[in-house]
Structures are given as structure tokens and as C-alpha cells.
Design a binder for these strands. Structure first.
Length: 537
DNA sequence: GCCT
DNA sequence: CAGTACG
DNA sequence: AGGCCGTTACTG
């Protein structure tokens, strides 16, 4: 069922990035066959190159073996440690794919084996603060709460892969697969601090070590988020996730400034917190009448930086001012009504209760629906800010027009108390997203009003929607940004490749990739798979 | 705010 | 369209 | 200098 299970040591599709280039070795392949193969390459949106030097992958006839291919190409097998030699694949892979009308998994059976004996180990990265991730697929039944223990120092640098000591033959194949999985130069990601490539689990364990620093920075980020200075807030947020990953108490300016995503300005502020125990800028903000009001107003659902500022300019300072004097939108009215309740976290168990209610009503309408609670709940958090429920149906049809009936059913029994956002374009053709944002209340004593988000999506978008709705927000942005680097784009609907942008606007939308599972999306992006618990940045 |  | 929101 | 997620989705 799961085509992308991690033990099959295969690659499903080659990411269509500029480096995933293919060359067809003409030897032993007739002209007609060559034409067919060329067309196939293009048909599958792979990049064909005219000369072997530029090719990451060589497609060759099965009559050859690896030394023969390399001799034709005038390449020296023994140089493989220094150079990154192309991967030689049997042309059968392409013919099989044509037969299936889809790229078939690039299993090791398709790859020409090498007789070569590899050198020992790569130089170690002793200078790196820490190497976080060195997970290899090899004989490891997936471990969820991975103990990817950093070697000390701050977990900052990401090395996608490391050549660990290899003394058995299997490693060779493993390396090949690894290379195939990462057609990028040396299998590394593009330059940058890609948090979507890292596990958030290390951060989870280190909540106490630098807590004072994190709390103060978070307070600043929260405040900046309620102003129009969203990029500054973004930087603070990224800095926080970096510090979370540090396994030791930060105690010198030099190590702070080295951390990715932390520059001079933030380093100084962090050092101030360490050195003096206080953060002047934050205290200024917290004692500022303006920031206090902005923060107060900004916690009303539906009130952003601009409305908050507007209200402040009108002289409003308290929630009562807003309640009595401000012109409130529908959403802001609801937001104000449940001001305190919406600021509270929801215990995990209660999320499960809410999920059960929604499931009951939805399944009563259409049996066999796939209903998955996402968000921080799926990421395994003990408490959640709201409840995010994704609904689809494997038949690809039964989801249509389903949202309104579900909402009606939930409303009728008193479970839903207020609506915030309710899209009504459920009659549109496939692909259309349908979402509901509202407020629910479980029956019984001492219950609180909770934010509930429901999306209903066509099944062919399940993986992208699941990925999106599971988050975290920073994780999504990081992953989408990475896709952007590959001339792809990732949204809650699809992962497209071959996108052409001009001045940051898309000229060519590219073509959608087949994304049956979340795993497939990670693979396309050269990322190690991260289960939901590891996306909690 | 940080990064290319 | 600007504003706000979702992960 | 200019990007930082999404041709995201919804409200008014």
C-alpha cells in the first residue's frame, strides 16, 4: 500500500532540478530506440543533456557492465572518491517506466553495480559545532523518537549526509542510493539554513537550558508579529528555533554569532540577556502604552496590525473601548467574545474528543471518509492552540459538497457555536479547497469554546494538504522556500516542477508531480523524511 | 531581523 | 483591493 | 538591493 516505505531503498522519481541530468549512452542502442528514449526523458520531465560530462545519470544498455561504460565514457573508476561520478542506470528503467506510464521506482536493481573498493572515510567535520543528522536507512527499523543526539555544542549545522566508516559491501550500494536520492552536488541541499531538513526532536529535549533567552526572544517576536514589522518577527522566530537546538547553555558571544540565522544585532541582544539577565528593548516595549494596546488588540481574532493601529490612533486603549466604540467586523466580534478562551491551550485529550464528534457526524453522512486531525495535535504536542481536521475520501469524489452538510449537522446539535470563515464554493470542479473556521463547544460542564478548522479536499491532494495542515508554519515555509530554490513550488494543493519565474512572479506554472504520500514530497525535495513529531519547529 |  | 488568516 | 510561502483562502 505504501509505495514509499523507507525500506525499499528505492527512489521513485528524480527531482527535476537542474542537476538531475540524464545522458543516454548511444552505444548498442539503435537510432529509433534512442529517439524513443529521448522523448521519454522529456515526457517524464527529466532533463536530457547532450554530453556525458554534464550528466548526473547515465542511461546505458544492459549488455554493458560498469567498467565498460566508464571506459566508453573515458572515465576512471578509481577516481570516484575525488570526483562525483555519474550514476549508471539500466535503460530498462526507462522502458519499464514507459510501460507503466509512470516513472517506476529507481531501485538498486536498475543501477549498475560497481566492483570498486572504496576508501575509508571522509575527513571529519571537527570544526562544526555539531552534526545533527546522520540517519542512514540501513538496517534501522524506523525509530520515531529518534535519539539523534548531537555531539555537544549547539546543533546548528546541517550535513545532509556523512560518509561514516564503511567496511562492508552493503555500504557501497547504500552510498549509491544515497547519491541517487540527492542528485545535488555531494548530496547537499542548496545553501541556507533549512529547518525542514532537521528534526525538531533535539529542541524538544532542551527546553530548560536556554529558557530565559528563548522566552524573552519569543516575547519580542510575539510583539513584533503584532506590528507591521513581520520580517523582524520572522528573524526572531528563526533565531529561536536555532537556539532551541542548542544542547548546551550558551555562554559566549562568539558562539552566538556563529549560529545560523543569528547576526550581529540579535547576538548582541542575546548576549545582553545572558550577561545582564534582562533585555532592555523588550522592557521598553512591555512598558510602552502603544505596544501594550497593540498586543491586546492583536489577540482578537480578525484584528491584525493595521486594525490594531487604527484603533489605537482612534484613542482606544482597552478591550472595553473596542467593544463599545470600535466598528467591529463579524470575525472580530466573535474574536472579542471569546477573547480569553481563544488564548488558552487545549489539552490533547480534549482535541481527541472534538475529533470524535466531527468524525461521528461526518461518517454518518458518508461512510468511509478519511478524517485526520492535523496541526500540533498530529505533531504530538501535549496541548494545542486549535483543532485542525482534514477530511477527504479515497474515491476522489465523495468529498464534493460535503462541507456544508457536515457543518450543518454539527451546528444543529449545538456543537458549533459561531462561524468565522466558511467557504461556500463547494460546487466548483475538483481541485477546489473547502475550509471552515469556526468555534465549537463540547457538551458538558466546564467546557470551553475552542477554535476548530476543517478542510475538505480531493484525495489527489491528500499528501500536500496533510503536509500543509500538519505544519508547523515555519516548517512549511522552509520547505516551500526550498522547493522554490529548485524551480518548483509547493502549496497545500500540489508540488509543481519546472516552474519559470521572472521577477518573482511565475511565468510558467510548471507541471504537477505525483505526490501519493508525504514521503514522496520529501523525496522530491532531497529531504530526509520527517514524521510529524519532528516538524515541530 | 538575516541572508545571498 | 487591503487586511487577516491557516499550517 | 531585495527576498523572506503560497498564482494559499476568505472577508468586506
Amino acid at each position: 500500500m505504501n509505495l514509499f516505505n523507507e525500506n525499499n531503498a528505492s527512489v521513485h522519481l528524480i527531482p527535476s532540478d537542474p542537476n538531475a541530468t540524464f545522458y543516454i549512452l548511444p552505444n548498442g542502442i539503435g537510432k529509433d530506440r534512442r529517439t524513443i528514449f529521448s522523448n521519454a526523458i522529456q515526457h517524464f520531465h527529466l532533463q536530457l543533456v547532450a554530453s556525458p560530462e554534464n550528466a548526473r545519470f547515465i542511461l546505458a544498455d544492459e549488455q554493458f557492465d560498469l567498467p565498460k561504460v566508464f571506459s566508453i565514457l573515458k572515465l576512471d573508476l578509481s577516481e570516484s572518491e575525488e570526483k562525483s561520478l555519474p550514476i549508471v542506470i539500466q535503460i530498462k528503467w526507462l522502458t519499464d517506466s514507459l510501460k507503466e506510464k509512470n516513472l517506476v521506482p529507481l531501485t538498486k536493481d536498475y543501477i549498475f553495480r560497481t566492483p570498486l573498493i572504496r576508501k575509508k572515510t571522509m575527513p571529519s567535520f571537527s570544526q562544526e559545532p555539531v552534526i545533527e543528522e546522520k540517519k542512514t536507512i540501513k538496517n534501522k527499523p524506523k525509530r520515531r523518537l529518534s535519539d539523534d543526539q548531537p555531539q555537544g555544542g549547539c546543533a546548528t549545522q546541517v550535513k545532509q549526509r556523512r560518509y561514516s566508516s564503511d567496511d562492508d559491501n552493503n555500504d557501497m550500494m547504500e552510498d549509491y542510493n544515497d547519491t541517487v536520492k540527492n542528485p545535488f552536488k555531494n548530496g547537499e541541499l542548496p545553501k541556507g539554513n533549512w529547518m525542514c531538513s532537521m528534526s525538531s526532536q533535539t529542541a524538544k529535549k532542551n527546553t530548560e537550558i536556554n529558557k530565559d533567552i528563548i522566552d524573552k526572544l519569543q516575547a519580542m517576536a510575539d510583539l513584533y508579529n503584532k506590528t507591521n514589522d513581520k520580517w523582524r518577527a520572522y528573524s526572531y522566530q528563526k533565531a529561536i528555533t536555532t537556539i532551541r537546538r542548542c544542547t548546551k547553555r550558551i555562554d559566549s558571544y562568539e558562539e552566538i554569532i556563529k549560529l545560523p540565522g543569528i547576526g550581529e544585532s540579535l547576538a548582541k541582544k542575546i548576549w545582553e540577556i545572558i550577561d545582564t539577565g534582562s533585555f532592555e528593548k523588550l522592557e521598553d516595549f512591555q512598558s510602552s502604552e502603544y505596544m501594550t494596546a497593540i498586543n491586546l488588540f492583536g489577540n482578537i481574532w480578525g484584528c491584525g496590525p493595521n486594525i490594531a493601529k487604527h484603533w489605537y490612533d482612534q484613542g482606544f486603549r482597552t478591550l472595553n473601548d473596542v467593544r463599545t466604540k470600535a466598528k467591529l467586523s463579524q470575525n472580530q466580534t466573535v474574536g472579542l467574545k471569546y477573547y480569553d478562551e481563544f488564548l488558552e491551550r487545549i489539552p490533547r485529550d480534549e482535541v481527541a474528543e472534538i475529533e470524535a464528534v466531527v468524525k461521528e457526524h461526518a461518517l454518518a453522512l458518508v461512510p468511509g471518509l478519511t478524517i485526520q486531525t492535523c496541526g500540533s495535535y498530529r505533531r504530538g504536542k501535549a496541548t494545542c492552540g486549535d483543532v485542525d481536521i482534514l477530511i477527504t475520501h479515497t474515491d476522489g469524489i465523495s468529498h464534493q459538497g460535503l462541507l456544508i452538510p457536515i457543518i450543518d449537522s454539527l451546528r444543529k446539535c449545538g456543537f458549533l457555536t459561531d462561524d468565522l470563515v466558511l467557504s461556500d464554493k463547494y460546487e466548483e470542479d475538483s481541485g477546489s479547497h473547502v475550509k471552515y473556521f469556526g468555534v465549537c463547544l463540547l457538551p458538558g460542564e466546564n467546557r470551553k469554546h475552542r477554535r476548530l478548522d476543517i478542510i475538505v479536499i480531493p484525495h489527489n491532494e491528500y499528501a500536500c494538504a496533510l503536509l500543509y495542515f500538519t505544519g508547523s508554519a515555519l516548517f512549511n515555509r522552509s520547505m516551500r522556500n526550498l522547493a522554490h530554490q529548485y524551480n518548483m513550488y509547493l502549496s497545500q494543493h500540489r508540488l509543481n516542477t519546472g516552474v519559470i519565474r521572472k521577477n518573482n512572479s511565475k511565468i510558467n506554472m510548471g507541471t504537477p508531480l505525483y505526490t501519493p504520500t508525504e514521503e514522496s514530497i520529501f523525496k522530491y525535495l532531497n529531504l530526509p523524511y520527517r514524521p510529524p513529531e519532528e516538524r515541530d519547529h
